[in-house]
């Protein structure tokens, strides 16, 4: 049995250990990785940049704590860009764990905009958080008629009509577009109902696991932008010139991927050697 065959039969716990060590070392060592901006991320940025002060966008923050590492950087970067440009943001959460994520992101960015840019954002005037409602498909359809059908009150119990930001805002026609940051299959409802039925300009930020499945909607024009996983988040951070956790994590991704590729190559060489010897059918 040669070295490749031995390595291909390596206890998988060694693989986990080596990967963990590489990730820890990469986190501790300071170095930069080059990033190339993809067209699908650039188009989200261009859309946000084209907005005028006073324009409205809707953000649907539909992810769970489990995907914070990938999703939070996108949400933070886009919210900060919107607030810097005086764009008004209506936030909804259509996944059950979304409200906590959305509220934290909103409050954190309101704080950081105040500290960094001296802008005192007012809840209800610059931003509104309508909260969570179950059954995303039905809620998305109802928001196409009137936000008040599903959200008569905001997350904090204030009637939506009492919020100055919602004066004159009836449905999707009154927002320039929807940016959906999600780790759930609710994105299908957004594409079918919001874009398909109401022609909403829709951009999505997805987990890495989901991203490859949604490029087809980009080509068909059902979504105009896509940020895929931590890479998409890092590209967006680069675009807004605000290096954050996603860009920082890219150096770790590079080394982790190298380790995985090396193990895949070793495993395959071991497999082919074994097959040639008749060990594997």
């Amino acid at each position: 049995m040669n070295i490749f065959e031995k390595l291909s039969k390596l206890d998988r716990r060694w693989v986990f250990l080596i990967l963990a060590v590489v990730v820890i070392i990469a986190l501790l060592v300071d170095f930069k990785t080059p990033l190339r901006i993809n067209k699908e991320v650039q188009s989200v940025y261009d859309f946000m940049e084209a907005l005028e002060p006073g324009d409205y966008i809707q953000m649907s923050i539909d992810y769970d704590p489990g995907t914070i590492a990938e999703m939070h950087p996108m949400t933070y970067a886009i919210l900060e860009q919107a607030f810097k440009k005086d764009v008004k943001v209506i936030i909804t959460a259509l996944s059950i764990n979304g409200p906590g994520m959305a509220e934290k992101a909103m409050l954190d960015i309101m704080d950081s905009v105040r500290i960094l840019y001296g802008k005192e954002l007012v809840y209800g005037e610059d931003v509104a958080f309508l909260g969570y409602k179950p059954y995303p498909g039905i809620v998305i359809l109802s928001m196409g008629q009137n936000y008040r059908i599903s959200f008569p009150q905001d997350y904090y119990g204030t009637p939506v009509d009492d919020l100055p930001i919602m004066k004159g805002i009836i449905n999707y026609d009154d927002v320039k577009g929807v940016i959906l940051i999600t780790g759930t299959s609710g994105v299908d409802f957004w594409i079918s109902y919001a874009n398909g039925r109401y022609d909403v300009e829709l951009a999505v930020g997805l987990t890495g696991v989901m991203a490859a499945d949604y490029y087809q909607y980009l080509r068909s024009g059902q979504i105009f932008g896509l940020m895929g996983g931590m890479l998409g988040a890092a590209e967006y951070e680069l675009l807004v010139k605000k290096p954050g956790p996603a860009m920082e994590a890219m150096k770790v991704q590079v080394w982790a991927h190298i380790v995985i590729i090396v193990f895949i190559i070793i495993g395959n060489i071991g497999y082919f050697i074994s097959r040639r010897k008749g060990g594997v059918s």
Binding site: L27, L28, G208, G228, G229
Partner: peptide
């Protein structure tokens, strides 16, 4: 393969997220 590549990136992102928490928020190393 493209799906698998993105999945690997997604899983590593989760690992990075948790290790960043452990080494940053908890241990204070980063």
């Amino acid at each position: 393969g493209a799906s698998f590549g993105y999945t690997v990136m997604g899983r590593i992102s989760l690992l990075v997220g948790r290790l960043t928490f452990i080494m940053g928020d908890w241990l204070g190393l980063i």
